[in-house]
Design a protein around this nucleic acid. Structure first.
Ligand SMILES: [Zn+2]
Ligand SMILES: [Zn+2]
Ligand SMILES: [Zn+2]
Ligand SMILES: [Zn+2]
Lengths: 142, 142
DNA sequence: CGATCAATTGAGAATCGTTGTCAAAGTGGT
DNA sequence: ACCACTTTGACAACGATTCTCAATTGATCG
């Protein structure tokens, strides 16, 4: 605690996680790059288990959460509350997900973004965020 | 309401779900009518526990699920995956929820409805549904 | 009413996704 | 090599939800 300050040019308010590129973290990142749909932490753990670099389940969760925090991965919840993850573009977007095969398309809707902000403002709600997902059956699954 | 449309082709009265109006079921329904924000099953169970008609936790869950199924109650998930419930109007709508006190306002957005449908159609996704919630800090909590 | 029988209830056990614990191993800087 | 700090992972702990199943309730019919 005494000399946690490194050089003078350091963090101000938000304590940034160093996030060292360890073997298991890169393994998770690579795993995330190897598929295109949303998958559970368990799934990803299994995927790694079969590969050449097994990673402990707890570490998978930790890394996934860090990636979500960093905005490199999107997380959403299935109807029954399970968290599922997907590597996504860093800009704000939403998802069109096939209810059957999981095929996912990123979508953007400036009008919706505008609408949510105005609705919130209209009712005096500040610090606004939102969640929006679209589900359907993709062409191949129909 | 979120989720899928239900087929209206039902049998007359022989099979199907009887759904008897028991003491505990009406207790849950009344409890749901007594507040205006989203609450967890546990909260509702506690609420009933303090009242004159305690209802078992399992029954609270069962009844809540039935009500959600019937479209009389909306369920959504907190960031950490917990299910929370609220008695809502039966027409399709979304929610503006205070992240701090839970104060909820039902909102409608025909434009958004149209947009989700067109996006889905554009990509060949059929049988479309969607989820959309807006979170913020209400005036009193700011 | 009183029997009958399926629906319902609830206490506790069982599930299961997720997070916490903590000793051991790894990393970077000196 | 030495040290201080991360990171890891096996496993325990947790919490929300569901399951089990014996006991209770409620509707129906004679
Ligand atoms: Zn995404
Ligand atoms: Zn958006
Ligand atoms: Zn609602
Ligand atoms: Zn809608």
């Amino acid at each position: 605690m005494t000399s946690t300050e490194k050089t003078s040019t350091e963090k101000t308010s938000t304590e940034r996680t160093p996030l060292r590129p360890t073997r298991q973290r890169t393994a998770v990142v690579e795993a995330m790059a190897s598929f295109d749909d949303f998958r559970s932490a368990q799934d990803i753990h299994d995927l790694l288990g079969r590969g050449a670099t097994p990673v402990g389940l707890a570490t998978v969760y930790r890394t996934l959460n860090a990636l979500v925090e960093a905005g490199e991965v999107d997380m959403l919840r299935t109807e029954d509350g399970e968290a599922i993850y997907r590597r996504c573009s860093e800009t704000h977007h939403h998802h069109l997900v096939c209810r059957s095969c999981g095929a996912t398309i990123e979508v953007e809707g400036p009008a919706v973004e505008r609408w949510t902000r105005s609705i919130a403002a209209e009712h005096g709600y500040a610090d606004v965020s939102h969640t929006l997902e679209i589900f359907g059956t993709c062409r191949r699954c129909s």
